[in-house]
Design a protein around this nucleic acid. Structure first.
Lengths: 314, 314
DNA sequence: TAAAAATACTCCATAGGTATTTTAT
DNA sequence: ATAAAATACCTATGGAGTATTTTTA
C-alpha cells in the first residue's frame, strides 16, 4: 500500500472515470489503472466496479476510500507540522544557567529576547554546573550559560564574555578607602563563600587565596544553597567580606550605603562565561540569537567576546 | 513521504538507535539511515538529533512521529476493512424482484438464505422490470429476479426456472369442470389483468390471446398498481377469470372453496424466470448462493434449470 | 580504540510513460 | 464505431543491499 495509491483511489472515487482521475493526479491513465489494480490485488478485494463506461465504487471500496482520505489528511498534517517546525526561531528554547549568572543575566535577557525573537519563549532553569551538564546531555535542556572551563563529550561551548571579580565589603570596612584590592589580601579576611557545588566558590578560592585556604576554619562557610544575594545581605550586616562577579556586584543599588564594591588590583581575577549546547542540537540559529542577545545585555564590568568561536568541549 | 519512511521514524523514535531500529524494520542500517535522512530533507526539518552514541528525538520530531503513528494506524485499518470485505458472502446483498415473483419467492428465499449464508442479509425491493433495470445499472441493486427476455448492456442473466401459467377462475365457473384449459378459449372470457408496466401482463396477452385483444373494451382493465393478490380476490368474488404464474396460483390455500386453478392445455404457456446482475458485479459467489437457494425453494409447478449458464444480456 | 552512523556503489523492483489491444456500448 | 480501460513493453527513479569511511566518545 502506498500513499500514492491511496491518492489514486480517492481521485478515482471522486471522478468515477480512470482518465479524468489520472489527469487530476497528473499521471497517465495506464499508470493510475495499474496502480489501482495493484492495490486491489494487495487488499484482495475489488474497490471499484468497472462497467463499460461506468465506474462505480463497491461498498467495501467506499469505506476504504473514506479511510484513505483520513490517512492522507493525517499525512498532510505531518507536512504542516514540519512547516511550523522549520523555523528554528519558533518553539520554546530550554535555557539553563548557573546560580551566579542566572539572577543577573535573565532579567535583561528575557525581555530582550522576547523582543528580538517573540516566537521563541525561554524555559529557564537555574542549577549547578554538574546538574546542568546532565540535563544538557539528556536533552532536557538546549542551551546552558555557565563558566569555563567546561568539558563534556558531545558538548560545544562558545565564550560570550569575560567577567572580572569584585570585592564586596561593609561600607565601613577599612578597605573601603582603597581603590583596588590585591587578591592576596583576601586570605586575612573573613571571606563569605557560596556552598560547595557552586563553581564560583572554587574559582574564588583558587584565584584569591589558594585551595589550602579552604580548610582554614576561620573562613566562614555559608549555608548550603544560599545565594549570592544572601551573602550580600550578610556582608551588609558586617559579618565579613566576599567576592562577586562584576555583574552581581554592581547593577544593584539596593544598599550602597551599607556595602562598598572595590575592584581587584592587577592581575584582576575573572571568569569566562560561555554558552554550551549539544554539538548535534539542530537549532544553531536559535543559539546564535541567544548569544547576540546576551552580548547586547548591559552587564556591568564585563568584556564582550563577540567574535569567539564555538569549541568542542571535551 | 512514504508509509515505509513513517514506519522507520516510528521505529527509530522507539529504539533511539539506528541499528536496532533497522533490525525491527527488517532492513539494513544504511537503508534506514538514508530513508530517515531523505524524509528529514523532504520535510526540511530535523526529526532526530544524532549525538555520537545517543539518538534523541527533537520536539518537532516527537510530534511528527506521533502523527506518523496515527497515519500508520489509519492505514492498517484499511487492511482490516479489506479483510472483512474479502468474504463475498459477508455484507448485504441488494436484491430486487418483479411484482409477480417477489411475493411468492421471498417468503421462502429469505429464511433459506439466512440459514445458508447468515452474514449476507438481503435488502429487498419489488418493482417493475424497467425500474429494476435502472436500479441495477446505477448500482443501487445487486441482483434482480425477473422474467426473460431481458436485454440490457452490461447486464448478464442466468435462467433459474421455467414457470407455467395457470388459469384461476371462480369455483362455480363452468371451466372448473375441465381439467385443462386451451389458451385460445381465454379471449371469450372476462380476463382480469395487471396494470400496464407489469411484464406478466404482456406475456399473458401475447401468449393467450394476441396483442390486438388488448384493445377490446370488453376485457377488464385492472387498476394501476394492483397486485396479483388483488386480482385473486376479484376472481374469488366472481368478477372474471385470470392467468397466474404457477407459484402464485398454487401454494396459497386461502380460498380453495371460492376459486379453482386449472392448468393450460398443451402448448402450456409459461415464463422463464432469471437472475440478472451487472457483468462487473464483484461478488459472483454471492449470486451463486442466491441462485442455489432459489433452486432449493419449493415453488409449485416450476421446472428448475440448475445447469443454466449465465448469458450476457443485451 | 570501538561503536555507530554516514557515505559510496551496485542492483533490482517498480512507478511511470507510450503505444496498442481489448472491451463495451 | 467510439470511448474507455486494460495490456504490453520500455525506461528510469529510487529503495535496499554490501562494503567502506567517517565520526565521536
Amino acid at each position: 500500500m502506498t500513499l500514492t495509491e491511496l491518492r489514486y483511489i480517492v481521485a478515482l472515487a471522486r471522478e468515477r472515470h480512470f482518465g479524468r482521475a489520472a489527469e487530476k493526479c497528473f499521471v497517465s491513465q495506464p499508470t493510475l489503472s495499474v496502480a489501482v489494480k495493484k492495490l486491489e490485488d494487495e487488499l484482495g478485494v475489488a474497490l471499484f466496479e468497472r462497467g463499460g463506461s461506468e465506474v462505480s465504487v463497491t461498498p467495501v471500496g467506499r469505506r476504504i476510500v473514506e479511510q484513505a482520505q483520513r490517512v492522507l489528511e493525517e499525512a498532510t498534517t505531518i507536512k504542516h507540522m514540519a512547516e511550523q517546525g522549520k523555523d528554528e526561531l519558533a518553539g520554546p528554547l530550554r535555557f539553563g544557567a548557573i546560580y551566579t549568572i542566572g539572577p543577573y543575566l535573565m532579567p535583561q535577557l528575557i525581555p530582550l529576547l522576547h523582543k528580538r525573537s517573540p516566537r521563541m519563549p525561554l524555559l529557564i532553569q537555574e542549577n549547578y554546573t554538574v546538574r546542568l551538564a546532565e540535563l544538557l546531555k539528556t536533552g532536557e535542556l538546549d542551551v546552558v550559560a555557565l563558566s569555563l572551563p567546561f568539558a563534556e563529550p558531545g558538548i560545544v561551548t562558545q565564550a560570550v564574555y569575560d567577567e572580572p571579580f569584585r570585592v564586596l565589603m561593609p561600607a565601613d570596612h577599612p578597605w573601603a578607602r582603597k581603590s583596588r584590592i590585591p587578591a592576596t589580601d583576601l586570605c586575612r579576611e573573613n571571606l563569605l563563600l557560596l556552598s560547595t557545588g557552586n563553581c564560583f566558590r572554587e574559582q574564588v578560592l583558587q584565584t584569591c587565596a589558594g585551595v589550602e585556604r579552604a580548610t582554614n576554619d576561620s573562613m566562614q562557610q555559608s549555608l548550603e544553597g544560599s545565594s549570592l544575594e544572601t551573602i550580600r545581605q550578610m556582608v551588609a550586616s558586617g559579618v565579613g567580606i566576599t567576592v562577586l562577579p562584576s555583574a552581581a556586584a554592581e547593577g544593584r543599588t539596593i544598599d550602597t550605603r551599607l556595602t562598598a564594591v572595590r575592584p581587584f588590583a592587577s592581575p584582576v581575577p575573572s571568569r569566562r562565561v560561555a554558552l554550551a549546547w549539544r554539538r548535534s542540537f539542530p537549532r544553531p540559529r536559535a543559539i546564535e540569537v541567544v548569544r547576540q542577545a546576551i552580548l547586547a545585555c548591559k552587564l556591568a564590568g564585563v568584556t564582550l567576546l563577540p567574535n569567539a568561536t564555538s569549541l568542542p568541549a571535551g
